[in-house]
Amino acid sequence: MEAAIFRQIEQFIEARETSEDAGIHDFLTLSSRRGVGKMIRVKSYVGVLQISDDVQLEILPKIHRASTVDARKAFLHMLRTLHTFSYKMFYNSTLHIDNLPIFEVFIHAYIEIIQRLVKHGLKCTYNEVEDNLYVMKGKINFSKHLQKNFVHQERFFVQYDEYNANRPENRLIKTTLHYLIKHSSSNEHVKQLRLLLRHFDHVPHSRKIKQDFNDVSLQRDMKHYELALSWANVFLQQQSFSAFQGQHDAPALLFPMEKLFESYVGHLVQQEARRTGWHINLQDNRYYLFERSFALRPDIVLTKGTRTIVMDAKWKLLSKTTSKQHQIAQADMYQMYAYAKKYNAEAVYVIYPLVEGFDVADSIQFISDDGVIVYVQFLDILENAPVVLKQSY
C-alpha cells in the first residue's frame, strides 16, 4: 500500500476514534508490530468503505487459495444467500465483476433495477397544489387570494389536486441516483445514472429521508418498487448490517463475515436436505438453556422422523499447528454440547472455513465422557460444494 494512501486511511480512523463514529473500531483499528511498524487491522467485516473522494477501501474475505478476483466472486456469491439482502440483483449473467470494484458492482446492479422500474412505469398519485393562476381551477383559497391578489384581480389563488409522480418512493429513488452519481468512480455508470434521472425531472429530492421511508406504501400495485427501495435504504441510510453509522460522509457497505458464512452454509445444507428428504430449520429457537432464559439458536437443525442433526457455522480461521484443539474456542464446544443435550441430537457438527493445513476430508471429533460427539468439518468456499457430513443423511 502506498504511504500516502496508508496515511489517508490512518487519518480516517483517527478522526473517528473520539467522535460519534467510534463504531469504526468494530471493524478497523490501528496497531503496530515490532519490526513491521504501523498496521491497519481489519476485523470480521467485508465490503467497501469510502475513505476520501479518491480512495475507496475494499475489504474482501480471507479465503484459502483465493486470489483477489476469487475472493470478490465468493463474497458476492455468499451475499446472494443472505435473506435480509436483495440477492436477486446479482443474478444478471451479463454482469462481469472480475475487475469491477464491489461498490461499482452494487451501482451497476442498481442501475439495472431502476431501468426495469422505469420501463414498468413510475407510480403517480394525487397531490394538493397551491398556485396563483390566471384561470379558475379547483377551489379558491380566500385568505391567500385576498393577500396576494388585492391589486391583481385577474388572478386566482387556488388549490387543486394534480396527478403526478411526486410521492415518497420516487423522491427516495431520485435522491439515491444523485447520491450514486456523487460517489461512483465509473464514467459509464455516471452517464447511465444521469440518463435515468431524466425520468424523475418533475420529482423533487427527498428532504426528509427517514420520514419518506416511513411513508413508503408497497401495496400490490407497487411490488416492482420493493427491490429499488430496499437498496435505496442501503445506500442512503447505510443499512448494510454494519455497526458503523456516524455523522461523517463516509459511504459504507459493510457486512459481518460471520453472518455471511452462516447464511452461505445454511443455503448449501438446505440444497442437500431437499435432495435427501430432511426437514431443515434455520436459526431454530425452540429451546432455552434454562427455563425461558438463555435462548439456544443453532444455525441449522435437520430432522427426519425421530432423527435430529444440529449444525453451526463459525467464521474462524483455525490452525493445525498451534495445539490439539486447533484454536477452536472452548465456548464453541460448550455451545455444541448444549445443542446435543437439548435437541437429543444423534450428531452435532460445527463447520469452519477451510484453511491451510487442513483438508475437507479431515476427520476431527471431540467426545465427552457422557457420549456426546462433536464433529468438526471444513468448507472449501471456492469449490461451492454441499457440506458433506461424516454421517450419511
Rank of each mutant, 00 (worst) to 15 (best):
E2Y: 06
I5T: 15
Q8V: 10
Q8M: 05
Q8Y: 04
E10W: 03
E17I: 02
D21E: 15
I24M: 06
L28T: 00
L30M: 06
S31E: 10
S32H: 12
S32W: 07
R33P: 05
G35H: 06
G37P: 09
G37N: 07
R41P: 04
Y45G: 02
V48G: 08
L57C: 08
P61L: 02
P61E: 10
R65I: 06
A66T: 02
T68H: 03
L76H: 05
M78H: 03
M78T: 05
F85V: 10
S86L: 07
F90C: 11
N92S: 15
L95M: 14
I97K: 03
P101K: 06
P101M: 02
I102V: 15
F103D: 13
F103I: 14
I111K: 03
I111A: 02
E112H: 13
I113M: 13
Q115E: 13
V118P: 02
V118Q: 03
L122C: 08
K123H: 09
Y126R: 12
E130G: 04
E130P: 01
F142Q: 09
K144F: 06
H145S: 07
K148L: 09
N149Q: 07
D161F: 13
Y163V: 01
R167C: 14
P168L: 09
R171M: 14
K174R: 14
K174H: 10
T176P: 10
Y179P: 01
Y179D: 05
K182N: 12
H189Y: 07
R198H: 13
D201V: 07
D201I: 06
D201T: 10
H205S: 12
S206R: 02
R207K: 13
K210C: 06
N214K: 15
N214M: 09
S217K: 08
Y225F: 04
L229Y: 05
S230D: 14
W231A: 03
F235T: 11
F235A: 11
Q238I: 07
Q239S: 14
S240D: 02
A243E: 09
Q245R: 13
G246V: 11
D249V: 03
P251N: 05
L253P: 02
L254C: 11
L254Y: 01
P256M: 06
L260C: 08
F261S: 04
F261H: 01
V265L: 05
Q270V: 05
Q270I: 02
A273N: 01
R274Q: 11
G277I: 00
W278H: 05
H279Y: 04
I280A: 02
I280H: 01
E291Y: 11
R292S: 11
F294I: 14
A295N: 14
A295D: 04
I300Q: 04
R307N: 15
T308M: 08
T308S: 09
V310A: 01
K316V: 08
T321F: 08
T322R: 13
Q325T: 15
H326G: 09
Q330M: 14
Q330I: 15
D332A: 07
M333R: 06
M333A: 09
Y334F: 15
A338K: 09
A340R: 00
A340N: 04
A345R: 07
V348W: 01
I351K: 00
Y352H: 06
D359T: 12
Q365G: 05
F366I: 15
F366S: 09
F366N: 07
Y375H: 15
Y375K: 11
Q377G: 13
A385S: 11
V387Y: 00
V388M: 00
V388A: 01
K390E: 10
Y393T: 07
